[in-house]
């Protein structure tokens, strides 16, 4: 198992995703002899996990069952331990495409936070790219480095514990893309530019407030970035359900032939209905996560 390479069977030392339901998943470090508690009972790693196929149904001690899935950055995003606010897959997908990430890309990121986006970046740039990620919070930087190791992607990433606004990314002239998720991105635009390749590249800044976006766009324009564009992407999940629509009864229709007029009276009032599959829109409008500002650094 690795976050950048699939394998078929669960092995000692893997991180597997235990799928309880669509809104409840938990990452499990697989260890010989270890146990994991779930609401359906205990999972014994040695017998229930190790040697099993990813995707298997595992019966827990209380008789309930769960699925054990191969980890992906997307499953990690919905199951990782939060140490900060995180980026979700909808934004991550947009960022990945709009930053033009692909195998071999060199990317700079700050802040690392809980590593939700970092894992998705690593998946996309492997096996020949590199991620330079900067996090000013020491414990968070250490923790995420540990996770990269457990997820077997540490060879693709350098974690730096420093303040990107003051000290930059620690590299110059190497990045194809830069991502900023910090409170004052405009202070890091210069550093982003310095970190990027001479031939240019793409930059993205994520900010929840429009005032931040405004200042960032100003600075980007001042620094000569082009194609500056700000967007927001929201996910709508459609709930598929069966609905039953009753048909109205207007009573006997005298203009219709006799036989049909007789029918309802003999069988009494009918409760005819049509059943169909449809979707209901999400009950709440999906929450605003943040604005994504993209720009292109031209060749300098």
């Amino acid at each position: 198992m690795s976050f950048v390479e699939y394998s078929d069977f669960i092995q000692d030392g893997d991180v597997a995703i235990v799928y309880l339901s669509h809104d409840s998943m938990m990452p499990v470090k697989v260890q010989q002899g270890a146990q994991t508690q779930t609401r359906y009972g205990v999972i014994r790693h040695s017998t229930d996990l190790i040697g099993q196929r990813y995707g298997s149904k595992v019966t827990c001690s209380k008789g309930g069952w769960v699925h054990v899935l191969h980890p992906t950055p997307e499953l990690w995003t919905v199951s990782l331990p939060h140490r900060t606010q995180i980026l979700y897959t909808t934004d991550i997908a947009t960022i990945t495409m709009m930053l033009e990430l692909k195998p071999g890309s060199v990317v700079c990121e700050s802040g690392t936070g809980s590593g939700s986006l970092s894992h998705a970046i690593l998946r996309t740039i492997a096996p020949t790219g590199h991620l330079h990620t900067v996090e000013f919070h020491q414990q968070r930087a250490e923790k995420v480095a540990e996770e990269f190791q457990e997820h077997r992607v540490d060879h693709l990433v350098t974690v730096r514990n420093q303040d990107v606004c003051k000290d930059g990314f620690g590299v110059t002239g190497v990045a194809d893309a830069v991502f900023l998720d910090i409170p004052s991105p405009w202070e890091a635009v210069k550093h982003a530019k310095a970190a990027m390749k001479r031939r240019g590249g793409r930059v993205c800044s994520f900010s929840p407030c429009i005032e931040q976006v405004q200042r960032t766009c100003e600075t980007l324009a001042e620094e000569g970035f082009q194609e500056i564009s700000t967007m927001e992407v929201l996910l709508r999940v459609h709930d598929v359900r069966t609905v039953s629509l009753p048909l109205p009864d207007f009573g006997p229709d005298p203009s219709e032939p006799d036989t049909e007029r007789e029918a309802p009276t003999t069988s009494g009032p009918t409760h005819a209905a049509v059943t169909l599959k449809t979707t209901t829109p999400p009950r709440e409008i999906p929450g605003h996560t943040g604005y994504l500002t993209f720009a292109t650094k031209p060749r300098t």
Binding site: T90, I210, V213, Q214, C217, E218, A221, E222, I228, S229, T230, M231, E232, V233, L234, L235, R236, V237, H238, V240, T279, Y291, T293
Partner: peptide, 14 residues
């Protein structure tokens, strides 16, 4: 089953 909404924002010139 999902779809996405995309909205572009015009941010004023510097």
């Amino acid at each position: 089953l999902t779809d996405t909404w995309l909205r572009h924002y015009q941010v004023n010139s510097p």
